[in-house]
Design a protein around this nucleic acid. Sequence first.
DNA 1: CATTTAAACTAACAATCGTTAGTTTTGTAC
DNA 2: GTACAAAACTAACGATTGTTAGTTTAAATG
Lengths: 192, 192
Amino acid sequence: MKQMSKRAEIISCAARLFRKRGFSATSVRDIAREMGMEASSLYNHIKSKQELLSSLLLDIAHTFSEGMESIETASIPAYQKLERLVALHVRISVEKTDAVSLVPSEWIHLDTDSIKQFLALRDEYDKTFKAILSACIKEGSIKSVNVDLAAFSILSSLRWLYSWYSKNQNINIVELEEEMKSYLLKGLVQNT
Amino acid sequence: MKQMSKRAEIISCAARLFRKRGFSATSVRDIAREMGMEASSLYNHIKSKQELLSSLLLDIAHTFSEGMESIETASIPAYQKLERLVALHVRISVEKTDAVSLVPSEWIHLDTDSIKQFLALRDEYDKTFKAILSACIKEGSIKSVNVDLAAFSILSSLRWLYSWYSKNQNINIVELEEEMKSYLLKGLVQNT
DNA sequence: CATTTAAACTAACAATCGTTAGTTTTGTAC
DNA sequence: GTACAAAACTAACGATTGTTAGTTTAAATG
């Protein structure tokens, strides 16, 4: 929290409030109060309330995309890519909890331009995820499943992980990773 | 949609709009326009905008709770209860898609009283879910996992299922059930 | 037809919204 | 100390918010 530009402070403050009350129910005056200044003073540092949201969501989307790209291009078996993806979500969820919390629902409040950029990044991410799943099937490391639905199911769990972490910050991160890999990939039933 | 009281029509109309734009970004005038009447006319049928949300969320929460109770009290192995829970989520997600979509995020906009009721139902649901998972471990049908995290992971997937269904309404419901059971319970990896 | 009730309407309210304009204060460089 | 820029302030704008009051229309009952 130290050595943070005032603009960055405002953005991270907005993230916290957007998460707590939602974008639409958070007023510029709410953010200003939390920052200890008048609402109009915020505009010396930001362009608009919309910009706060798009900055947060596009930044976190790029973070995920970059992580995905470095995994995708690695020279490792596809199944190991799946494991690294779980680790990626755990790491980002822990490091940028507030911003991650906005991903599932708050993107609908982006303006037209930002929504296009955001969904483009998200679609690309999903597409690559499915490609990795398909590669796993091809290499024989996972069952021959409905790739679309399996990807959706796994990503649903991973995208909500931030909320689990918020209530259980005492958990060991490596342990969290290992257990998520176990549930999502290996399943629950006993291997007889 | 036929034989629906005007009040019920308004509530289901509100559900659609709340889902599309979020509760806070949906105005009473938006709902009125969709209903083909003036905003003030709505108040002949409803008490407040808040009531629309709490009615939707408490109703869907009760639907889940009732389903859970009938599963919990059934005289069947715990593992079969898990399978029935997946089926329950699939069925409700298909039948009440709009209302289900409000469950993950929009409950934060409930008033103090409703929020207490909603979270009480939700907590009870989670608790029973975990108890069934524990019973599965005891009967030896699943691995000895971290029950809290496993329950969280599975429920995350199930709670987002409505969104998959919305984009893939052509899918066979029984098939959807079977595949979700497969991913969530049996996992992806090949059993060697 | 007359009466009553339910449900629509118009008009307006106080509050709050995001944002802008114009001014004053604060901090830095010469 | 003067000059300049950054960042705070006060005040206000037009628009929109949920809701209420009072009135008119429509439908149902006798």
